[in-house]
Design a protein around this nucleic acid. Structure first.
Lengths: 184, 184, 184, 184
DNA sequence: AATGAATGAGATTTCATTCAT
DNA sequence: AATGAATGAAATCTCATTCAT
């Protein structure tokens, strides 16, 4: 029998942190391996290339976000309550797992081209939510809601707004409700 | 009167296009020079480093956006009219110079850290606009407005929504007005 | 009585095929193991190193050729008949085991340096055969005969001449006989 | 203006020598650059890859050999004299430029696959020479002649026969003439 | 006995940048 | 002024091999 993998998890953690801290391209294999306390070659046993590591990290964490949103919007209640649940879920994600949130935020545009078209994205969840309310503008409303989430989060990340994000739950929820046309 | 340098403009155009197409880090000096039909060394006559080129491109176009917004929000009229003007200006900018817009979208997070803190940003214009209306929430409202702009633009760029962007002028304006609490 | 190792033969076959197809250096342990459907470490149970595997493959087949030639040249008959027998044996061997031949052709120069000086080579058999006939030129005649074999075989392998090799038995025998000065 | 290339010729010389001495695959870019007294990166200004360097060296030197043979076989005289001229040319090449000869000899099989099919090879020159004499067997006779050349040269290279190669001119010529059926 | 994990050394190649003409 | 040549450093990745289970 062979020994269990020992380097895989540390490599993922190190990569996530360094990618977020210094950027995907500014982070080298060497640095990741050093932080994970293993050899550079170990990485290539688990992922065929650096890009594959980035993509797999992204997909994994994106799936987390999608699952989180799916759960939130499928909670009982009317549209307003679901929007509140989605807002809360997203904002909490940043507070709980800031690395995951920032990673997804940072690399999404770079990754975009290499993702399959049918990949389920956070946008899709919001669009489905909005579609029941206003089918004609669902895409636009979902985009607006997502834009509000992300930009507020970006403000907190870059220090324009004080954290934690969760403190803006009520306010952001209210903004999204207004966008949708359901002011409190 | 020295004649203007010949290589500068082609280098900027080539850089912008390649940065947007392949990413900032994936684009090398060599490739930029080849597209601009000049030597690699020529680039160093005009900018001291690749990073300086990136930053200067970014700052230049940022200044353009800021100027555009400044002009829009200083137009006569009430808040709603100013918001409409700002929306129109931003969306038109993308349609007129999609490369510029995409470039700013792509590199803003990477660049952010290296910009001086007192740099006037598009956010600042929007915040000033909002401050007159609702001082307590100005930052948040400006963030929401900006988020809506950017996300809708991103949707068009990545094909989730059909272009051109300007066609969403009325809808986006309406969404921002709702966010601000001034529904049509 | 220990049962024979299971992985040895598949490893040899896989190595031979891949060495011939992609070259000795371009073929990695990993690829060999994958083709042989066993682990990389298994190879090291049977040979102490990759180089040992190459050498053993080479020596094994060299021994086969030598034995074949030895048998052929010790058959009853005069020189012409022995030359015919040797020719037939060599050409048939290559028809039967084209991979082996190509392998020998590819690596012989690289291997040459690492073989012991007293290693009995096909050349030696031919030289002994020739020595009885023309002691002064034995080495040269043997070289010429071997050169004819190898080059004709190479032509077949690389498609300059249609196969199978055996069809050239009479012609090649005649050529070698002429070289030796015993034209039919 | 730019400076003239300084590293190109030394790189070619170093590569040729090291490829012949240690083998193509056992010779690294680093070693080549060190022998040429320039940086490793300099190589990539002149050839896009190591393989391209190998191929270009091969093609260049192969063209030399072909030109040499072409000149030899186009000399005035009957077939026997042309064969003598070709033999002399080939054997002298080894004595004059042993590196070129050995390089072509060593890498030809590794290179074979990547060469265009219509590439003119030494074989072709000999075949044309033989075709006038015996059209039916031209390919076979040319192969035999080439095999004799190469194997005798290989014997000298590996010390089975004492050098220089030119001393075997008469003997080798005689052998080839016998093969062709024109014994002295 | 046999495996997948892990590794250190080294491979080739690319980078932004400087040099020499 | 402008170029192609050259470079040191670093990048990603592969290698044959050994380890631990």
């Amino acid at each position: 029998m062979s020994r269990p993998p020992r380097a895989r998890a540390p490599l993922k953690e190190a990569a996530l942190e360094l990618f977020v801290r210094h950027g995907v391209h500014a982070t080298g294999i060497r640095e990741i391996a050093r932080h994970a306390q293993c050899s550079e070659a170990a990485l290539y046993r688990h992922w065929p290339s650096k890009e594959a590591l980035i993509t797999s990290l992204f997909e994994e964490h994106l799936a987390e976000v999608v699952a989180l949103l799916d759960e939130a919007v499928s909670a009982p209640g009317d549209l307003a309550e679901r929007i509140r649940a989605a807002t809360t879920a997203v904002l909490r994600l940043y507070d709980d797992q800031p690395l995951v949130f920032r990673f997804v935020l940072l690399v999404r545009y770079e990754i975009a081209a290499s993702l399959p078209d049918d990949r389920r994205m956070p946008q899709d969840v919001l669009e489905e939510l909005m579609r029941a309310h206003d089918p004609d503008q669902a895409v636009l409303l979902a985009a607006a809601a997502m834009g509000i989430f992300l930009q507020v989060a970006a403000h907190v990340i870059f220090g324009r707004l004080p954290g934690p994000l969760e403190r803006y739950c009520d306010q952001v929820t209210e903004l999204v409700l207004r966008v949708v046309g359901l002011p409190g």
